Amino acid sequence: MFYPNSPQTSPQLTQIPYGQQYAMMQRQIQQPYHPFATTEPQARLYPYHYQGPIQQEQGGFITQQSTAASPQYVQMRVTPVDQSIMSGYPNQTANGSSSSSFNYNIHPQQQQQQQQQQQQLRHHAMPVGSVPLQDDRYRKQLIVNYLAPDVTSTDLHELFSRFGELDGARIIYDKQTNMSKGYGFVYFCHAEDAKEAVERMSGYEFHGKWLKVGYSTNPLNIVPSNSSPYVHAGSRGAAG
């Protein structure tokens, strides 16, 4: 039997160049792979992502010199942007860049009308829970959420009447099932009393439920100042 490094198959040491006398086997001759043993700084910083320098080929596509990437890492192929796409944008300079302001050559009167329309939209648009300043009635009506099913309009009136005089209180019921929808409205005579009720009743436990109280901004629920107070009856038909 002959071994790869046996004296019968191995040459004389004098015939082997210096430095390879003890590297006779194939696994010894093959050098191990060192990912950080390279002179390129990109490979030292990113050993798993770097795959060699990027070269520009004919046709405008950018390719990489090395083989496919590892399945664990996804390499994105980048193509140059066609400058003709950006030619339609206004205020574009000769080098292809555009300024931040756009001039669509709008007539001054049209621009003024658009600004007025935007101001009107901001004036009428009102986020949930906010209180408008032009109508004091919005500051007097509250919406009470997360009410228990057994709470009546009379219970709601008695709960909030300790903060001040009320114009009314009612629970909203479903017309088909005649069941409470879980929320109601309270109408105060003074805005200061309503503000105190919002601050003190939010998070209050009532009939096993934690109440959420806020201003009601729905104009359909506003009680006119010259109208008669609501009837605080315990029956659902009268309260709904």
Rank of each mutant, 00 (worst) to 15 (best):
T177H: 08
R122N: 06
Q15V: 03
D193E: 11
G203L: 03
A169L: 01
Y89Q: 12
E40T: 10
Q141K: 02
V74L: 09
D167M: 04
G208S: 08
H49S: 05
E192G: 09
I106Q: 04
Q141N: 00
S87K: 14
E158V: 13
Q141M: 00
K195C: 14
Q116V: 09
E40W: 04
Y104L: 09
N95K: 13
R122H: 04
Q134P: 12
R236I: 07
T217P: 00
D135I: 04
Q21I: 03
R162K: 07
Y89S: 09
N221G: 04
Y215L: 02
S161I: 10
G60E: 12
A43M: 05
F206Y: 08
R170F: 02
P41A: 09
Y183F: 13
K181D: 00
D150G: 14
A23F: 03
Y22N: 15
Q12T: 07
E165L: 14
H207F: 15
V81S: 10
S101D: 04
A125D: 05
Q117F: 10
H190K: 12
T14A: 10
S153Q: 15
L121N: 09
Y187C: 00
S6P: 10
N226H: 10
N226K: 11
Q64T: 08
G234K: 09
S216K: 01
S202L: 15
I85N: 13
G88E: 06
Y50C: 12
Y187R: 01
N178A: 12
G203M: 03
T38R: 13
Q134M: 14
I62H: 12
Q64D: 08
N91F: 05
L133H: 15
A148Y: 01
V144T: 00
L142W: 01
R122E: 03
V186E: 01
P35V: 04
S130I: 06
Q42I: 05
N218L: 01
S99A: 05
L166C: 02
S130M: 04
Q75P: 08
K195G: 14
G59C: 08
F61N: 12
S235D: 10
I85H: 12
P80C: 14
Y204R: 14
Q20P: 12
A37R: 14
A68E: 04
Q31I: 05
G237M: 11
Q115L: 10
G208M: 10
D174Y: 14
A94Q: 09
Q20N: 14
Q21R: 15
S6T: 10
Q117Y: 13
V74S: 13
P132L: 11
S97F: 15
M201P: 00
G52N: 14
E192Q: 08
P17M: 13
A238D: 04
I54Y: 05
T217E: 02
E199M: 15
L156A: 00
I222E: 01
T9K: 15
M201G: 03
P35N: 04
T63D: 12
T9R: 13
A23V: 03
Y89G: 11
Q112F: 11
P224Q: 06
R170I: 00
Q72R: 14
N218E: 00
A148T: 09
P53T: 10
K195H: 10
K175F: 02
Y183W: 00
E165P: 10
Y89N: 06
A238P: 08
S153R: 15
M25L: 06
T177Y: 15
R236W: 03
Q141G: 00
C189H: 14
N145Q: 01
P90H: 12
V74T: 15
Q42D: 08
Q30R: 14
M25Q: 09
Y204F: 11
G203T: 03
R139Y: 14
L156K: 00
F160R: 01
F206D: 01
V74H: 14
R27Q: 04
G182D: 01
S99D: 06
V81A: 09
V128W: 10
S84G: 10
Y138G: 06
I106P: 07
I54P: 14
L45H: 15
Q21K: 14
S99I: 08
P17T: 11
F206V: 03
S202A: 09
Q110A: 07
Y215N: 01
H232T: 09
Q111Y: 10
S70G: 09
W210G: 02
G234P: 10
T9A: 10
I85S: 11
Q56C: 08
V186M: 01
G88M: 07
N95W: 12
P90F: 06
M179K: 05
V151A: 10
R200N: 04
A37G: 06
P7W: 04
I16Y: 07
L45T: 13
Y33D: 06
Y104I: 08
L166E: 00
L220N: 02
D150P: 11
R139D: 03
M86Y: 10
Y173E: 09
Q83L: 04
R170W: 01
E57F: 05
L13M: 12
G168Y: 01
H123I: 07
Q8C: 11
L13G: 12
Q112N: 06
P108A: 10
F36K: 15
L45P: 14
V144L: 02
L13D: 08
E40L: 12
P132N: 10
W210V: 02
R137N: 03
G60Y: 02
Q113W: 14
Q31Y: 05
V78D: 10
T38M: 11
Q21N: 06
R27E: 03
P132D: 12
K140V: 02
Y146V: 01
P4T: 10
H190D: 11
G168R: 02
R122Q: 04
K175D: 00
Q30T: 08
